[in-house]
Design a protein around this nucleic acid. Structure first.
Lengths: 195, 195
DNA sequence: CCAAATCTGTTGGATAAGCAACACTGGAGC
DNA sequence: GCTCCAGTGTTGCTTATCCAACAGATTTGG
């Protein structure tokens, strides 16, 4: 369940403040790009005191981390991928989710920033890996969960990124692309032998 | 300017809480109607503590008052009617605003409640009267501002309410109706002699 | 280059919001 | 009638947020 339960029983004020900061952050990054955004911009738009910002995040990079992590987690929860077992359909849904998330996010930050992309990659890969590792462990096959999950998460992210960067006018849809690479990824899951 | 400046320099937390309660109130009233809505319903949906509710409003009737007052005030501000002088166009805009506000609001509360309608009438009439009185005073004519404003505000509200209750399939639009009654109301403003 | 302006983190004290508990009321169902 | 339950206001105490002020870093532009 991807440790979602950690932030369930939180003070309503805390939830509210973080949510306000996150939303404001998204908006203002979409306007000015990540680099040129200041903490003041964020807090001002959010209607939150600047001191309060620092009570939650050390700096804007930490908020970027948090926002990306939350954003992707919510996408997983929307499709209930955080509470399910392995199946081809779920794997397909996961890959499509990654494709669309990358595609939306990178078009959302103007100008695009290496910081932004790096955090995206780290956070998304980590969650995909955790999820897949969970799937494999519950299957109880003889595949090594850690190795298989690592390989799969890297492959998925790499392919999804390449797809999202593809500016070709007849780039396939996320679904079509996913169907194309699905066997390859599925192979990663079953072929990793325990050492 | 209709004493809008009173709530400009307010603690952000207060603004936030009231806004959350107001929004939640609107939503939940639209679902269940005013009578059957409880304070708990409102605070729960708003994510605000019940004790906090009572720190702002004595009961749900006070919140109804506040919401209607704020709602209508915002409509006036949208059209900058709160910071303008008298003109036929502004008077027309004011009447249209009242018509549309009543029409939207009453369709918004299911089932319709006499409490609701009564508060609507009180709050809207009071603000319309204040605004018109202000217009007349700045004109410096020999009309008695208080008398003229009272007559006009009552007439406007009464006509607007009648119009909004009209279920006839060829009921005129708010604009057409306003043009129809505009001379009558304008007469109220100039014909009230000072005693 | 320097100066002015802007942004960053951080602090102490004030204040709003949260929480759990309480006694009370009014209605629903037995 | 009665109990039971759900909602109402209220309270004392805890915690999060606000605010103004600060020194230092970074940027702007003359």
């Amino acid at each position: 369940m991807l440790s979602t339960f950690l932030e369930e029983k939180l003070d309503p004020r805390v939830k509210r403040t973080r949510s306000l900061l996150e939303q404001s952050f998204m908006d203002v990054v979409a306007q000015k790009g990540f680099q040129s955004v200041s903490v003041q911009d964020i807090t001002e738009k959010a209607g939150v005191n600047r001191a309060t910002f620092y009570a939650h995040f050390p700096d804007k990079y930490a908020l970027l981390d948090y926002s990306v992590r939350q954003g992707f987690r919510q996408e997983l929860e929307k499709r209930t991928l955080n509470v399910c077992t392995f199946s081809m359909d779920n794997l397909r849904a996961l890959i499509v989710t990654v494709c669309e998330f990358i595609s939306n996010a990178s078009s959302h930050c103007n100008p695009p920033s290496p910081q932004f992309e790096s955090v995206m990659e780290t956070q998304v890969k980590a969650q995909v890996q955790e999820l897949i590792q969970n799937w494999i462990q519950k299957l109880g096959t003889d595949a090594d969960p850690k190795i298989a999950a690592t390989a799969a998460s890297w492959a998925i992210y790499g392919l999804a990124q390449q797809w999202s960067h593809d500016r070709n006018r007849n780039r396939p849809s996320a679904e079509k692309f996913t169907d194309q690479i699905l066997p390859l990824i599925a192979g990663n899951l079953s072929l990793a032998q325990r050492v």
